[in-house]
Design a binder for these strands. Sequence first.
DNA 1: TTGTAAGCGTTATCAC
DNA 2: GTGATAACGCTTACAA
Lengths: 346, 346
Amino acid sequence: MSTMREVAAVAKVSAKTVSRVFNNDPHVLPETRERVEAALRELNYVPNTLATTFRAGRYPAIGIAVPDLVDPFFAALAKAVGQLAAQHNMSILVTNLHDDPEREQPIVEALLRQSLSGLIIAPISHDQAYLAAWASRTPIVFVDRAPTKVPADHFVEDDHGGAYTATEHLINHGHQRIAFLGDSLDIPTTRNRYHGYNDALRHHQLPNHDELVALGAMDRDRAATAFAQLEALQPPPSALFCSNARCAMALVPVLSRTELAVTTFGDFPMADMVTPAFTVIDQNPVRVGQLAGQRIIDRIQHPNRRYRRRNVLPVGLIERESCLNTARLHPSHQPTLTTAHSSKAG
Amino acid sequence: MSTMREVAAVAKVSAKTVSRVFNNDPHVLPETRERVEAALRELNYVPNTLATTFRAGRYPAIGIAVPDLVDPFFAALAKAVGQLAAQHNMSILVTNLHDDPEREQPIVEALLRQSLSGLIIAPISHDQAYLAAWASRTPIVFVDRAPTKVPADHFVEDDHGGAYTATEHLINHGHQRIAFLGDSLDIPTTRNRYHGYNDALRHHQLPNHDELVALGAMDRDRAATAFAQLEALQPPPSALFCSNARCAMALVPVLSRTELAVTTFGDFPMADMVTPAFTVIDQNPVRVGQLAGQRIIDRIQHPNRRYRRRNVLPVGLIERESCLNTARLHPSHQPTLTTAHSSKAG
DNA sequence: TTGTAAGCGTTATCAC
DNA sequence: GTGATAACGCTTACAA
């Protein structure tokens, strides 16, 4: 690991001239350049990125903080940001919040202390006010979940609309007792989806009983428990709206044993291949990642331009067979079976 | 963003004293400490990580370069490294190689230039000789795939043994024409697994025809094409060994329409829920990540200790129903159906 | 065209 | 116990 000074000594020039040659500054005599280039090669010079970054005062990297890297949605999102960043000679710094609201602030602040060029965050805490102090220095863009107690750019999916659509889809299939399964109403996206579900019920003059809401379905065991509670109701629900893909995945084992009609928010790998295939509200993590990344780049390049803070991306319904099984109750509603692929996770 | 100098000015001490207070150096008078702490709070001092890192000459971060972040195996691996790193006050720098052998070297070298504390890599190129120059400065650990043309620590799964087991499992079910489906024999893991498959056939005196080997099954379309070729054979194979989870996932749609017995290398989310449920060779990305991360930490803390370079992790067979369907050909072999969960992706 | 000096923010060294 | 000084490697501003 030789430094510019060492190269300079070999080439018998000053460090500055080495810098000029290395950075293709035209103001160097061809013969000098040649001598320096020989020295660069000889010493196998590699710039010290730490020094360059420190000097520049800004790390050419976009930070990405997500609840869980293993969630295909966030993995795809991070990957998309990475591709965009690479086009702008930036790297990405992916950090896992480990689904722990308490750890969010320390983890994110550790990230921000690195003088990042930008931060993309899908928060899990209930309050991101702590980010206000950083926003003046670092462009911050929220994804998937809108910011709480701090104004900031955000690109979110239409939680309410998607949940409304999914619920109405079940209603149109003749269902009257539709359950809601989710992780926690403390999570804004889940709350928004709950409201969408609720509004759909209300709009169709269907009662919304609290007993129909089951939460905590984070893994297979807990999903089974939550689901058992719903099945024990008198009468049990005939349909279910699942508020996110993770819960849906956890639900698959019990679902295959039942007759329930199900829709879920968020596609997942193999959603079209399990039994029954899930009718889903389709999110687009790649698009979210691209838009968020582009906003960071724009904010860096044009700090004074005005931008729309709130950006809600439309979501679509991908109909599969998971709500077919009750069509026989109401033959008048024959849904269309599409063969859309769940290609998110390649 | 105030600096130590500014804090020092307010507290009427030198920058060094601020540094001492901030870093809990005991050699500070209580009253001085108090004054400095007040100033720290007043100016809301936050250290500049860039400067500290530059000064230290070493970035407290472990780089992780994987073929594809969206692959659940690598996502889980990266997550595990991240958890370990956090325990040692390090962060992780995840980089996606985008499955492109050409881009590996530039991407990885950009990563290494940052004076990382260590690098964990699952390479996709055919030659990692370029890493030799870096290894003296940065501990490098290979995962999933052994290094080519450079000596380095590596933690890999037992590709050959796993493939042998999976193939033998099919043979034990009475199959004689067993096909091999994979991505590319250029990939060392795939090649190792191919050898394992081949050796199992040979050991059982079964012929291994080239026509039974189908490659390029990277996505659903190409998997369908590759599979169609196999089906068109006279006679067609009665069983299939799939060399990795990604190909297996791509194969699911066509597989549900067939009668083939299938085993695959690498579990994947929902592998136990699709039809038929896949019998898989189970890898353990979390364990690989933990071991690799720990090796980096060990190498940093004890540079002179000796370590075992080559570490092959055993893999196990998780039997599910995907090779049941031919049991009726040979009723004597009734496999046990386990209900093991594919809980990798949480 | 080339070189000198200075500084980014922090910390180790060595005075006092 | 505290502070002045220098240094990490690079690049900007300014001179020569």
